[in-house]
């Protein structure tokens, strides 16, 4: 085998090294510049909650604007979504436990057939207000990107917390505690 390193290779190594250093430096600068940009702010959290009005399955109406002074937990759900089935009892229990303390739970049914949604409500004995968002306007206004998805709206009308995916007993409890609720 011929030897890889012969007399004039030093110069070549230097040149190759210089080229690699320049490339590496450019990449580092690029990456650093990306990091230096203002950090991404999740637009779905911290801004004023879009007001919406929902016609409920039980015939009534729900108006977010009319819920003033109370904390609202807006939950987007669908009958075909498995995690929604898991969190339905939790939502019902939360509603029953905190409604006296000024919490409203509202279920916004999305991407669903009406009869299936009704069956779902019956099966899980849902008593909190639930209505359908047939054109998805409310969901888009909130920036819903999947199902289930929940929003905690403060008394001031600001979205305090967005929970993409399933709620758990713990994160409901801690979020409500941070919003000034006492465990009943």
């Amino acid at each position: 085998m011929e030897s890889l390193i012969t007399a004039p290779t030093r110069r070549r190594w230097l040149r190759a090294g210089a080229v690699s250093i320049v490339i590496a430096a450019l990449l580092t600068v690029f990456f650093a510049a990306m990091r230096l940009q203002p950090p991404h702010r999740n637009p779905q959290q911290g801004r004023t909650a879009p007001v919406f009005s929902l016609s409920l399955f039980d015939g009534g109406r729900f108006d977010l604007a009319a819920a003033g002074g109370r904390v609202v937990l807006v939950n987007f759900w669908s009958s075909w979504c498995l995690p929604c089935r898991d969190e339905a009892p939790l939502l019902e229990a939360t509603w029953r436990a905190y409604r006296g303390n000024g919490l409203v739970v509202v279920g916004v049914n999305l991407w669903d057939a009406e009869h299936e949604a009704r069956a779902f409500l019956q099966r899980y004995r849902i008593s909190f207000p639930a209505g359908s968002d047939p054109k998805g306007r409310t969901a888009i206004a909130y920036g819903v990107a999947g199902i289930p998805e929940s929003y905690f709206v403060e008394r001031s009308g600001r979205i305090a917390v967005r929970v993409p995916g399933s709620l758990t007993a713990e994160n409901v409890a801690t979020t409500l505690a941070s919003l000034g609720f006492r465990r009943p």
Partner: peptide, 29 residues
Amino acid sequence: QMRDLIRQRLLAGDRPETIIRYFVERYGE
């Protein structure tokens, strides 16, 4: 549903840039 909303906004006379901004405000960059 987003396309349906775009249709409604266009018919209401909104400019495309306004509509796009609406979505960016909600879903981010």
